[in-house]
Design a protein around this nucleic acid. Structure first.
Lengths: 202, 202
DNA sequence: TATGATTGTCTGACCGGTCAGACAATAGTG
DNA sequence: CACTATTGTCTGACCGGTCAGACAATCATA
């Protein structure tokens, strides 16, 4: 690989490697991904990945942390942007933020699924995966609590528990969708909305 | 490893290897499991695994197929056993059959999660994983349809869609539970039941 | 002894990680 | 400005180790 004309700074290179790793994981899976795959995706030598990251595991952890940062910030933004529109609109915007685009959503869940599996076995992975899950639930709880308080959702809901259910619906239906090649992305989004609002009794 | 006193017949040995593979996957993860792990768990030499299965991948596929066979049969049994008790009891028994015992359920979802991931990438895995998912949904649809027809569940539910939601709840909440070391298994089961029946409006 | 089951051993492929050094940019010096 | 030293970035070659699978020898039984 020819050296890039203008050397990018360190932060830029790290990002490029993380994006490469993300793509490589989506393609080969967490367990099967190799440093060479990452390097190829990033258009860079394998040794460089280890120049920027202590080892393979640290690189992969950093991928999850990056995903977490990006997605959760976007989701939180969607919620606060719609604060004046009421909890129903907030939840809708939140779901929209999480399911942004067919290809993106597909890749995300391919990678996320692997991180779930890895987080249950490798201690280092656990922390960052858990942070994403709990972070999302916190956001969901906030909206659900408001919806319940304002009488837009079922009164008998306990916000913490309901948030976990919303999370389960998102994860569960996303996984199922990954297996349905035939179903258009838009229809999946509809089903997800119906399931969530159906559960919340909205 | 000492040879077993009485040589078991082929079917028995296959089962033993499959059980070993199941345990090994639960421990190390699908991507990281080695033939040696499987052999160790089965108390047998590595070469024997390749004597009974064409290669590693075939062995792993067979694991998923075995799981599918066992679990789905048990779930179907639970449903038919409670046919006279009505759809609510059937669904309860079905959920009970799927979540049978903390350790078993935990191991199952550890393995299942990996098969989901593998099924999305390897063609050979896809078929057997998909069979399990769709098979479960068929069972769920049957019960939901009856519940809707008899007015025990919400009238506006479309059974096929609702079955997918029930499946999503089981998967999603199970995954979350795996991450909560503190939550007792019984409480998870309660939450699952509340979520499912809450959604169905029962 | 003949046959199928089981094992130990070997090998080629691959992977993570190291390392010496190449190259470009920058800083310092006269 | 011209020249050199220094630093940070990046690579190809390589090493130790692991794994899937092949294979021939051994064992148990009929």
């Amino acid at each position: 690989m020819a050296r890039v004309a203008k050397p990018e700074d360190a932060a830029e290179m790290r990002k490029r490697l993380l994006r490469g790793a993300y793509a490589a994981i989506a393609e080969h899976g967490f367990g099967a991904v190799t440093l060479q795959d990452v390097a190829d995706q990033a258009g860079v030598s394998k040794a460089l990945a280890l120049y920027y990251f202590k080892n393979k595991e640290q690189l992969l952890v950093a991928v999850m942390e990056r995903i977490d940062g990006i997605i959760r910030a976007r989701a939180a933004q969607a919620i606060s942007d719609n604060a004046s529109e009421g909890p129903r609109a907030q939840l809708l915007a939140y779901l929209g933020a999480l399911t942004q685009g067919a290809q993106r959503h597909r890749d995300f869940y391919l990678v996320y699924l692997d991180f779930l599996s890895a987080g249950l076995r490798k201690v280092d992975m656990r922390a960052s995966t858990l942070r994403f899950i709990l972070g999302c639930e916190t956001l969901e709880e906030e909206v659900v609590a408001r919806g319940v308080a304002e009488g837009e959702f079922r009164r008998d809901l306990e916000p913490g528990e309901a948030a976990a259910v919303v999370r389960a619906l998102i994860d569960g239906l996303s996984i199922e969708w990954l297996f349905r090649d035939d179903e258009p992305f838009a229809r999946f989004c509809e089903r997800l909305r119906r399931a969530v609002f159906g559960y919340l009794g909205a």
